[in-house]
């Protein structure tokens, strides 16, 4: 039994980890300046936001859902948080706290809306979140008069550029905290157990005496929460709030989740896998840039890698089923 479990581990999180290590080695050998501490700090900074969003996305996808609105909701959250942050006549600590609450709060509200509407009227999350994608984007543009907000307090800016031990960026630590929280919830709480169970067979769970709607709505709200946090991270890193931020973030988060081994039909996957998935995307982007590929070529290669990872995954599932 032990050996089977370890085989499964290698096939799942471990397998993705091996792919990541493989890619890192290839780039270390081929790309100039790839294997430097400074560059690793860079990569960590680059993947932080996608990692944070992917944590929430994993919850939603584990339930067999999807959230296409994360990019737009992130933009809306930065606008509201940004407006609060530059309010005059408020002490800086109070402004920062309120701003964070505003950003996270609006993210959660949007998530609640997504979850509630899709559960209450049995509308596929794809459709509801597609609608929310437009609603949040429109609201962000409207509220900001289509203008970028800047001029945040200097101490706020500073925190965003701090690196712990000169290596670990502050926003990466926030993302890491979200990964750990997400992992803990999925593995060790009743809520996490229900997410997997509902993702596998919602009807059986309902007939076991559970209100599955609550858990589904909560998962969307949690996704909104991580998007809200990601919005604050974005402001820390770029020192702006903008209504046009976040396009393509949805697809990046979905890609990280799926590369990480989470099944689009729900019920299977892990937070560690998602984190590794986000790392793979980040390392690829960074490494391909360093070996001199342009934006367009990088996009093509990344696209192929996503497909390749999922193809590999189908074999993994087949093999894992055989060893059980």
């Amino acid at each position: 039994m032990k050996s089977k479990r370890s085989i499964n581990f290698i096939l799942q999180e471990g397998g993705i980890g091996l792919i990541l290590i493989f890619i890192v080695i290839i780039f270390a050998l081929t790309a100039p300046r790839f294997a430097t501490l400074l560059n690793f700090t860079n990569i960590m900074q680059q993947i932080s936001i996608n990692t944070a969003i992917s944590v929430g996305m994993t919850f939603v996808i584990l339930l067999g859902g999807i959230d296409l609105s994360v990019g737009s909701v992130l933009a809306l959250a930065t606008i509201l948080a940004g407006k609060v942050l530059i309010t005059e006549n408020m002490s800086i600590p109070a402004a920062v706290v309120l701003s964070a609450l505003a950003g996270i709060g609006v993210g959660m509200l949007c998530g609640l809306f997504n979850g509630f509407v899709s559960v209450r009227w049995k509308i596929p999350p794809f459709i509801v979140t597609l609608g929310m994608m437009n609603i949040a984007r429109g609201a962000a543009l409207q509220i900001s008069n289509s203008r970028t907000i800047f001029g945040f307090p200097t101490s706020f800016n500073k925190f965003g550029t701090v690196n712990l031990f000169n290596v670990l960026p502050s926003i990466f630590l926030i993302a890491l905290a979200l990964v750990i929280i997400g992992h803990f919830i999925l593995k060790y709480t009743v809520f996490g157990r229900m997410i997997y169970a509902i993702g596998n067979n919602e009807e059986a769970v309902r007939l076991s005496g559970h209100n599955t709607a609550i858990y589904k709505i909560a998962a969307f709200a949690f996704c909104g929460f991580t998007v809200g946090v990601a919005a604050i991270m974005y402001m820390l890193r770029l020192n702006i709030a903008s209504p046009i931020l976040g396009t393509g973030f949805d697809m990046n988060a979905i890609a990280a989740t799926v590369i990480g081994g989470t099944s689009m039909s729900g019920g299977k996957g892990s937070m560690v896998g998602t984190f590794l998935g986000a790392c793979i995307i980040g390392v690829l982007n960074n490494g391909l840039l360093l070996i001199g590929l342009g934006d367009n070529a990088r996009q093509i290669v990344t696209g192929f890698i996503i497909i390749f990872a999922v193809v590999i995954d189908t074999y993994r599932v087949k093999f894992a089923n055989r060893t059980e």
């Binding site: 060790y188 709480t189 009743v190 809520f191 996490g192 157990r193 229900m194 997997y196 169970a197 596998n200 067979n201 009807e203 059986a204 769970v205 007939l207 076991s208 005496g209 559970h210 019920g267 299977k268």
Partner: peptide, 29 residues
């Protein structure tokens, strides 16, 4: 198969799903 068990989860998960409060404390398994 479609309403009784969760096929791709293990025996323990299937058996305890009707009374998760018995195997958890404050929401922690």
């Amino acid at each position: 198969k479609t309403q009784g068990v969760i096929l791709s989860m293990n025996i323990a998960v299937n058996q305890t799903i009707t009374a998760l409060e018995k195997i958890s404390k404050n929401g922690l398994l």
